[in-house]
Amino acid sequence: MEAYSLNDLKPLAKEVRKKIIEMVYTAKSGHPGGSLSITDVLTVLYFKEMNIDPKNPSDPNRDILVMSKGHASPALYAVLSLRGYFSEDLLSGFRNKNSDLEGHVHRGIPGVESSTGSLGQGLGVAIGFALAAKLDHNPKRIYAILGDGEMEEGNIWESMLAASKYHLDNLTAIVDRNMIQLDGFTENIMPLGDISEKARAFGWNTIIINGHDFNEIINAIETAKSVKNRPTMIVANTVKGKGVSYMENNPKYHGAPPKNEEEYIRALNDIEAM
């Protein structure tokens, strides 16, 4: 396996962000905001933390990641292609009828473990993977990436009960706490409050981090590996649209690409200057 160092992560994450912008701009559609907010977490997972081999994507011992917030497909597709699961050239086909890169995360793509898009389902699917790993005495790790708005779905809380009941210490859920959902700010639409406190009440170990600080992301994921008998929820405080000045903290860019060439260039320049 190739070894990536901490110093590699920053340029890699920049590259991922540029690809996200290119994809949604080429497709003239897609979800840049929540893709940019989860970029650093995904970069750490795929380039540093997860035990994976892009040349052998069905290795039974591989770590599993379920991208529950399936609208952040540009981030996942960009990371998977840069990690070597498929050619970067394919990214330009995002949301195009002649491409496999469906608008929301699609299992037919190498490296994708489960199709997602309708929210609230990925945590439960990750729990299924975690139960199977326990049954097989396989030490693999299971990750679920959740949006914060997504936590308004009831299935998330049903699944949190189940993960706790079955002592799934092989499961780490990471919440992209960017405070924004399609219609606006989460605390106005449906207040989620202290997610970490709620998860603790459900029997989870919880860690709150800055979701754009590589060291904090790495430390939290490592800590989760050492926790016994309980699943861990990492609440990653992030900025929606991170890296693109006019997208940051702007609900408008939850699901809208750069409007024109000028915005597109500005986005790429902003990312380059990060």
Binding site: A126, G128, L135, S159
Partner: peptide, 11 residues
């Protein structure tokens, strides 16, 4: 969803 995950994992 857990059934789906268990099935994806080969059960």
């Amino acid at each position: 969803t857990a059934a789906a995950g268990l099935s994806l994992a080969g059960k």
